[in-house]
Design a protein around this nucleic acid. Structure first.
Lengths: 343, 343
DNA sequence: TTGAAAGCGCTAACAA
DNA sequence: TTGTTAGCGCTTTCAA
């Protein structure tokens, strides 16, 4: 048998992995049929399904998502942008998001923007270039150019952990201003009148702080004493912030911290200085991290359901990707003040 | 002018985004030339570079990474698998990894395997399907099938936070057994003789614990009293574990905890029970989290440079992806015991 | 229910 | 230095 087929003039070898083509050949069907057997089994006869499934098993075939994404313009990739993974605030959200996505075959890409807007534009470009089916933003998008680009890309966006009046697209969060006001109410109900606040210098902490200050003013309380600390907040900055508050030489009987870590720092420092919490000083944290309930005294904290935020964000994006119309684009998950020993 | 070109028989509309083709046309060059201008500017004349850059600016072109990845079999995607993002241990590693990758245009995909091996196989399939240029494993890969699959995929793998004698591929970590032994030495040098340990039930914590117990035995100390707590460890489980140790009604003058969170729990519980740390009880944590230095008393802890691990993992993968031969496949980052007030 | 053809947007291989 | 051609592996469109 002479082979007089022209020799291939160029060869390009791919990854060498098993392709759908191989599976189809082994199963004795066309590639497209094998494709359907895998992605829409109901559209295919039982016999074909069997043969394809068997061929997949024998070859160890794993679908090439890049090729699939290119062909279908659905990458099943979702990007999440957070300021930094080291801050504990968003972790539950990211966890729930990852899981919610994984259940539907979507994979999370993680990007860190930093608390400054330094890397933001580059990050956004890298993300958009991967053609994700959605982008989840936690924390503000600083750069106007970035916002424009995102909108121009047409990629569904979910902003989280906030409730802006002008969402880019979809939104899951709660009102930080309401938190500030609610904590004032709470402290007043405990008979506290001289309020202080320790807050990170990130956008949202500042919003809580401002509302806190305004509410105190509205309630005719003494001016709130404020200390600003750099984000991300730490136990250490909580300690030194309490020191600063004391130096101000104005009395205060309650402190609202913009994170539980700060609150813990205040607690440590207060003990060192012989200040009794809650007798002399009420303490309210934010975030209701795991440990808040288990330190002594336990920390009263503003609880936010970060998990619900992540789950809802996943749902938003998947619904959009699968072409389901959403009933609404904004979800307010609210918050609660969990009363414990510290206040 | 009659157009008698045959009408296109099928049309398929892509994402609608600007393509390299558009950019090339606008710049008056061939697509491949535009491609080179963007990915290897040095291979292109200044004039071409200028025209292409301008065209990119005017169109807002963003490269389609899926298409590029498919064509070049280099996705510039790297997957990281961690047990859960909620445990604070790996965060610094993930952060450094993300950053190290981003600097070179690589993007991180995050997967959570859970501490059980439940989702592991599905996760691995989802990851391999994305054809990442590398996979970073933090935490053990339980499933044998998973390991086989990973190897079969040919994707570079970096295992981290450990030093196994039989790495799948590349490895950055330190010896957990050495940690256990070093802590025994340390406590002995402080005159402690009756040791206890509180350890999470994950693979590596157990390895530290076993070495700790063995070293105590080798040093002819009394048998170590052990309490095992479920991973991920919490402050709460640290508190109750101290309670359990005390119930054992055997004296002990030092506790080694498999995480700083556990150690903090022990500290809280000890204070509640009137046990003086470090006078009556020495306390050593693990991880040297942020807060360890700032609580009262500060916590002596085993410091591991999680950041270095992440950076090295990024370097490993990028070197491999760019075809640079590595000098070595295993890096031991070691650890140090940071002496503080608690021991 | 199955298949043939075309092409998603890019880059490797080759040629000029 | 630039361009031509041919895919990468999959899924959409259209047809049977």
């Amino acid at each position: 048998m002479t082979s007089d087929a022209p020799a291939p003039r160029r060869t390009r070898r791919g990854s060498g992995a098993v392709t759908l083509h191989d599976v189809a050949k082994l199963a004795g069907v066309a590639p497209i049929t094998a494709s359907r057997a895998l992605s829409a089994p109901s559209q295919v006869s039982a016999e074909v399904l069997r043969k394809v499934t068997e061929a997949v098993g024998r070859t160890g075939y794993v679908r090439n998502g890049l090729a699939g994404g290119l062909a279908s313009t659905r990458s099943r990739l979702v990007a999440a942008v957070i300021p930094t993974i080291t801050g504990p605030v968003f972790l539950q959200t990211i966890q729930a998001l990852t899981e919610g996505l994984a259940e539907h075959g979507y994979q999370l890409m993680l990007g860190q923007s930093g608390y400054a807007n330094s890397r933001e534009d580059a990050l956004l470009e890298a993300i958009i270039g991967r053609r994700p089916d959605g982008i989840v933003l936690t924390g503000i998008l600083h750069s106007a150019q970035g916002r424009r680009r995102l909108i121009a890309s047409g990629i569904p966006v979910v902003e989280t952990w906030d409730l802006t009046p002008t969402p880019l697209d979809m939104l899951v969060g709660f009102s930080h201003a309401d938190v500030g006001r609610a904590v004032v109410d709470y402290l007043r109900s405990k008979g506290r009148k001289r309020l202080a606040v320790i807050a990170g210098d990130d956008e949202r902490s500042m919003r809580r702080r401002q509302a806190f200050e305004a509410a105190a003013r509205a309630a005719k309380l003494a001016d709130v004493i404020s200390v600003e600390v750099p984000a991300p907040t730490t136990l250490k900055s909580g300690r030194s912030a309490l020191g600063q508050l004391l130096q101000a030489r104005r009395k205060f009987d309650a402190v609202f911290c913009s994170s539980d870590l700060l609150a813990l720092g205040v607690m440590v420092e207060a003990r060192v200085r012989g200040i009794d919490i809650p007798a002399q000083l009420s303490l309210v944290g934010f975030g209701d991290l795991d440990f808040a309930a288990d330190v002594e005294p336990s920390i009263t904290s503003v609880h936010v359901d970060g998990e619900a935020i992540g789950r809802q964000a996943a749902r938003f994006i998947i619904d959009r990707a699968e072409g389901r119309a959403a009933e609404r684009n904004v979800v307010d998950v609210g918050f609660t003040i969990v009363e414990r020993a510290s206040a």
